[in-house]
Design a protein around this nucleic acid. Sequence first.
DNA 1: CTAGGATCTAGAGCGCACTCTAGATCAAGT
DNA 2: ACTTGATCTAGAGTGCGCTCTAGATCCTAG
Lengths: 142, 142
Amino acid sequence: MTSAPATSGTFTIGEVADRTGLSVHALRYYEKQNLLIGPVQRTAGGRRTYTAVDVDWLMICVKLRESGMPVAELKRFAELVRQGPGNEEQRLQLLDTHRRRVEAQINALEECRSLIEWKVGVYTGHLRAGEAEGLWDPTRHG
Amino acid sequence: MTSAPATSGTFTIGEVADRTGLSVHALRYYEKQNLLIGPVQRTAGGRRTYTAVDVDWLMICVKLRESGMPVAELKRFAELVRQGPGNEEQRLQLLDTHRRRVEAQINALEECRSLIEWKVGVYTGHLRAGEAEGLWDPTRHG
DNA sequence: CTAGGATCTAGAGCGCACTCTAGATCAAGT
DNA sequence: ACTTGATCTAGAGTGCGCTCTAGATCCTAG
């Protein structure tokens, strides 16, 4: 075990790191960047104690970051959530911006996948030709 | 016009920048990093003259970079292509590694898209509820 | 009581992929 | 000839998102 459980129902920074895949460094960094929604509670000794809600939010953060949302934008989103209800339209706009980015990226990736499949076909063809009849024409590259 | 045509059939660095979407700086950087397949030809005055083959290769580079292939790996791929036929298996392996990365990324993006759609549903619901009957319970965030 | 690991803060450092700067040269239009 | 803009080289600088360091403190197990 790298991280011992804190009071049941809350989590140490190490446990949160295990659960979210973020490093403890990254967790402190996210907090300093104001990416979290509430202030993280502390023990008497000054250690952070994360709640399940904190962890859930961090999971969302991870998904958004993985999909290319810049930290600055995630910070803006956290601010909106922190303000509470009443700004749903702004949240929707932010998410919509990100959705567009995500879809563009999916398209780019799918194009790349096609390119790869095409290239794989070319090289596999070369290999089969090579096995069948020796070297192919060395003047044709790519 | 930001970039005048060179000898027909070849391209100035500015034209290549226009066609590939890379900056002229990035083009010189790619060359220095050995991402290109052949040495780029020069005019008497020392300016680069790219061929259509160079441009095609750069287009592939752009696709691979867009889809997250690190420059170092692209460089390795360029080396293999530069060596000519005979290393198709290594090229296939490299492409396969990248294909896996691309597919993982597509999956991550699709998960994120679902998350967004779910969140959008939540906020849209809030908005409709708000329009219909005023403020919702301010203790439920997210 | 002690040793060990986990955590704390503040801030420096890093890897990546460019991007920009400075100062010179080249080339095309007038 | 002159002006203007594109290009050249070498190398410094930038932005992002962490990652790592140092030195102190906390806490759990033995």
